[in-house]
Design a protein around this nucleic acid. Structure first.
Length: 482
RNA sequence: CGGGGUGUGGCGCAGCCUGGUAGCGCACCUGCUUUGGGAGCAGGGAGUCGGAGGUUCAAAUCCUCUCACCCCGACCA
């Protein structure tokens, strides 16, 4: 063992998380502090995320484009809230070509400013609206404390930036993309999320309103998995993004921005994986199944490899399949290795199976074995994938629902958060200082204010604020966040 | 950035207190036997002990500085 041991979750959740990443070869630390190398195993997952999300982004009318990495420092300063939010975490380039630059260039922490500077050139008429653009890019934020995938100095993401004629149109877009994220998280990632609005103190610097999807990890902590911002005219005014309406009047555009990042890979790990390693929802697994032929003699090797190849060919167009024909390793080793890498299904073919024209099918998450005719694998595997996808979601949902408590007493709330058991649904009067006080005393923050229209599991009722007793229109979602 | 911890062949660790020139398990290479849940035996290769400086006849070991990672806090997707 040695190199491939994974610390059990019950012993040390953080170490377990790092062990899974190392054993599954998802990422490694780079020589630069806080930066990560995404290894092929991790990048393949990111590519699957990109494929599925990109499809949804395009289906909702957006086009991809690419804006530059470098942003003039003065651009950031044009929006007061925005620069205030990002100033401490900027990487700034002061030299180019061996010379001091006249104006320093910021390495983008996000691209609102450079994109809207361009939008002001491109938008003239209401006929140019809405303008719906997305970009896949890297961004840099000089974080104090980093964790692989969850928070790294440089990370990959997509950022959508749209311009609209009216506030209502922009708001509609903001919620449309939030729904895209919810749908993606729940149906592709098998990750149940709370969909709601951020409080003012948690919103994006420069946004009017921020919405998020929030997921629960296996340690009961919250992970913000995606955000969507209604930016109002906060950027269109300083960047002069204007259009002439049908009455001939100049109007400022209403903007939105929304994004998800490589953090989603961290969410996948912490939501589904187990003490044997990575568990991936089949819909996002780069490799759908691995075939392990089992042999003792050369004749058996030829027989089982031939059978494995036949099965693989029968699965063409169904899912991605790999035959593990490595000679040096014994089957047991291969089983463990592919399990730790999160391949959803394993197909074993030994001499006994070949004799009976059968195969053994094993599901990654529950390790259940099925014996079936070789010719039936083609029919069965997609069903097994679908069942596993469904079960992973249900398991995560059940875990989340049993780790949420409705709490009306602050003393109980404090104890509950101290125990680190999960989320609380509690009333809040809306006062920013109350929020700060609770954070200070319990480390818990308001993850979001769940929105009715997304059918979140939230008791719809008015009540009294957990801390002040003042009236509260509905419960908000509290948790300790990553 | 503050508090705590850890850095020794690819990985996990012992050795450090009480200085004497590096060891164990797994992995790797060769051979034979093995192969349906991480194989066995035999032989072999691989480490300037995170880095720099200092003390000393002699430093993995003592001292100073520095870097990286982990945990806790402040900041954040």
């Amino acid at each position: 063992m040695g190199t491939d041991t994974i610390t059990p979750r019950s012993k040390d959740f953080s170490q377990w998380y790092l062990d899974v990443i190392r054993v599954a070869e998802l990422a490694d630390h780079s020589p630069v502090r806080g930066c990560m190398v995404i290894r092929p195993g991790g990048y393949a997952i990111w590519e699957r995320i990109q494929q599925e999300l990109d499809r949804r982004i395009k289906e909702t009318g957006h086009q991809n484009a690419y804006f530059p990495l470098f942003i003039p420092e003065s651009f950031l300063k044009k929006e007061a809230q925005h620069v205030e939010g990002f100033a401490p975490e900027l990487a700034v380039v002061t030299h180019g070509g061996g010379k001091l630059l006249e104006e320093p260039l910021v390495v983008r922490p996000t691209s609102e400013t450079i994109i809207y500077a361009m939008y002001s050139k491109w938008i003239n008429s209401y006929r140019d609206l809405p303008l719906l653009i997305n970009q896949w890019a890297n961004v840099v934020r000089w974080e104090l404390r980093t964790r692989l995938f969850l928070r790294t100095t440089e990370f990959l993401w997509q950022e959508g930036h749209t311009a609209h004629a009216t506030e209502a149109n922009a708001e509609e877009e903001t919620l449309r993309m939030l729904e895209v994220y919810r749908d993606f998280a729940e149906n592709e990632m098998a990750l149940p999320v709370f969909t709601g609005r951020k409080t003012d103190s948690e919103k994006f610097a420069g946004a009017l309103r921020t919405f998020s999807i929030e997921a629960m990890m296996q340690d009961g902590k919250a992970l913000q998995a995606g955000t969507s911002h209604s930016l109002g005219q906060n950027f269109s005014v300083p960047f002069n993004v204007r259009y002439q309406d049908d009455a001939g009047q100049m109007q400022y555009c209403w903007m939105t921005s929304w994004g998800v990042s490589t953090r989603l890979i961290g969410a996948l790990i912490m939501a589904h994986s187990d003490d044997n390693g990575l568990v991936l929802p089949p819909r996002l697994a780069p490799l759908g199944a691995v075939i392990v032929p089992i042999w003792a003699s050369d004749e058996e090797k030829a027989l089982t490899l031939e059978a494995a190849d036949r099965i693989k060919r029968s699965l063409a167009g169904i899912t991605t399949v790999k035959i593990d024909d490595r000679d040096q390793m014994r089957p047991g080793w291969k089983f463990s290795e592919w399990e730790s890498r999160g391949v959803p299904a394993r197909i074993e073919v030994g001499p006994k199976d070949v004799a009976k024209e059968q195969a053994v099918l094993v599901r990654r998450d529950n390790r259940k074995k099925e014996f079936l005719p070789m010719s039936a694998v083609r029919e069965r595997l997609p069903l097994l994938h679908a069942e596993m996808q469904h079960d992973l979601f249900e398991k995560a949902r059940e875990f989340r629902d049993t780790h949420i408590r409705v709490i009306d007493d602050y003393a109980e709330f404090k104890e509950y958060m101290k125990a680190g058991e999960g989320f609380a649904l509690s009333h809040w009067c809306g006062d920013r200082e109350v929020e700060a006080k609770v954070k200070d005393e319990t480390k818990a923050t308001i993850r979001n204010i769940p929105l009715d229209k997304f059918s979140n599991p939230r008791p719809e009722e008015a009540g009294a604020c957990l801390v002040t007793g003042r009236p509260s229109p509905f419960r908000v979602l509290w948790g300790i966040a990553y």
